[in-house]
Design a protein around this nucleic acid. Sequence first.
DNA 1: TTCCTGGCAT
DNA 2: ATGCCAGGAA
Length: 349
Amino acid sequence: MSFIDEVIGWYLVNKRDLPWRNTTDPYIIWLSEIILQQTRVEQGLPYFYRFAEKYPSVSEFAAATEDEILNLWQGLGYYSRGRNMHRTAQMVMEDHAGYFPKKYDELIKLKGVGEYTAAAISSFAANEAKAVVDGNVFRLLARYFGIEEPINSPKAKRVFTALANELIDEKNPATSNQALMEFGSLQCRPKNPLCGSCPLQPDCEAFKKGLTDILPLKLKKQVSRNRYFSYVLLLSDGKILLNKRGPNDIWQNLYELPLIETTEAEDALNIVSTQGFRDMFGRAEIKSVYGPVRHVLSHQKIHAQFIVIDTIAGQVDLKKDSLFFADIAQLEHLAQPKLIFSFLKKFLN
DNA sequence: TTCCTGGCAT
DNA sequence: ATGCCAGGAA
């Protein structure tokens, strides 16, 4: 039996029953695929249900505000996915009369939809024979064929996509694609792959050569930079001072506390005497300090401390127009990075 | 603690 | 080539 037939046979027996596998609605499939980018099924599943329920079709999604989308997205990470989805929903309403596209060539034009997602939606919704190549497929192919090209090298995507397109079952592209990913995810998993029960074991190059632990090869990522965030918590009359983050940095359009950033770790006492702090708050009394709290992103390590201060609201200078007072009760409607909402949740309760 | 996983945009 | 996020595993 051929490689792909083995994998499909395994899939039909072992597949998980996931909600987006029981539909050919490209909107629902798109929803699930974007949520599942860089995200585990178990983590994405509750978000998928929330989005599918609140926005049953692309028109409801497009009618929402970006704040509403990001609020529902809160905690999932990679927030550009949420922002791009919002723009894409509006593109679909305007350019496609509300009919979500299902052909690869149209899908690839949408914001946040790259080669993988376009192949996934077009094959699942319209049985287009485009091979999906996600992390699971990279790993499975690298091992089975003993490919030593690092999967994050510049040419890797070309090489693996070409191979996957040769292997795809042209008669059942949707099942073929699902099967490859599910097999990679559950059987040929990153750590401790289940070679003992693997139907591909006899022909697997990595297994035969004892290379399952080192394949796929991956170039080392560079070190991350340190950033020191001193957040200022100012409560006044049941209101809290917030900042909406802007472009060209992490957490775009999300809400956080007012922030003094420094290049080194600084004591809270030094922070309140910086020009940036004085501009915003004038003189203030430090009531307490929490931290440091470390928060790791792909290329940055955030060292945060939270400085609780006391001052008179009237003295606060809101000249930075991204600063504003919000009702505490309003907080749950404003999307915040995990670092912020975890702290506020703990502090305010 | 540290390490690792995971698509797209620029 | 590099930045974006969170959480599970080691």
